[in-house]
Design a protein around this nucleic acid. Structure first.
Lengths: 131, 131
DNA sequence: CTCGCTACCTAGCATTACCGTATACTCAGC
DNA sequence: GCTGAGTATACGGTAATGCTAGGTAGCGAG
């Protein structure tokens, strides 16, 4: 039973996060207003998806640059001012489009729950051809 | 209403696919045996997730290289022989682990369906600080 | 023979994301 | 003033994916 290394798993998971994280941020901001730090908490608490500043701020900067979110400085009752982000109309639209594609991919990942196709049964007898 | 370009959307979707595609292939192979070409059909039909040979074969090669799938040549009744792939025990284990992380990310993306947190209401009155 | 379809593989390119780490600023408490 | 927590930002390293395009080859039909 071949064992894959920890680095292997970590590398693949990191790769998996790429792109989804951005979509996830958009998803969270769809109906909620957040600032960078609170986003980190939300992502960490709600889904145990841990991430650091170095990951979240570049994402927000990118989304802002592309007009997908809009930032607003808001004074805080306690502590320094916060930069609140909200999804723009463009952001909503893009999120919806990407969500559709994402949904298809998700259903493929979850295909293992579906019953195997009778036309291509799991235990099909295979005629080995050559080594 | 700022418009994002088509290239923008395409770029983000491409980025989104990175990593997920590999997981999706594992998911499909979890209970079903497939060869490269049939995989392309499955992905295209079932979810309209279009991809070309140049995408699927490198993925299969990688999974094979890492011992996550096992390949077997099978003669075809009609046409050239086919290389069937099946997920190995390692592959199943890794898939399960990655699925867990994936599930968390999915739930975040779908957060927009959840009711907004009362503590951070959408329509919260914001005190603008400065331009 | 040649066409077309099935089937597999490779090379090279463009892409840019995520993460660790360090810095700096604001505000409240003392 | 000083400290500490909350908040935002800069920067470089590192990695290797997905896509386009092209190439080989078996098999059946006209």
């Amino acid at each position: 039973m071949m064992e894959y290394s920890d680095e292997d798993r970590a590398r693949r998971i990191t790769q998996l996060r790429k792109g989804i994280l951005e979509l996830a941020v958009m998803g969270v901001l769809y109906n909620e207003r957040h600032y960078g730090y609170s986003l980190i908490r939300v992502l960490s608490e709600d889904g145990s998806v841990s991430l650091k500043e170095g990951t979240i701020y570049p994402i927000l900067a990118r989304l802002d640059r592309d007009g997908l979110v809009r930032a607003e400085w808001v004074e805080s009752d306690q502590g320094p001012p916060r930069k609140y982000y909200a999804l723009t109309a463009s952001g909503r639209q893009l999120f919806d489009e990407m969500s559709q594609e994402f949904g298809l991919l998700v259903s493929l990942v979850q295909r293992k729950w579906k019953a195997p196709d009778p036309a291509e049964p799991v235990g099909k007898k295979l005629a080995v051809r050559k080594a």
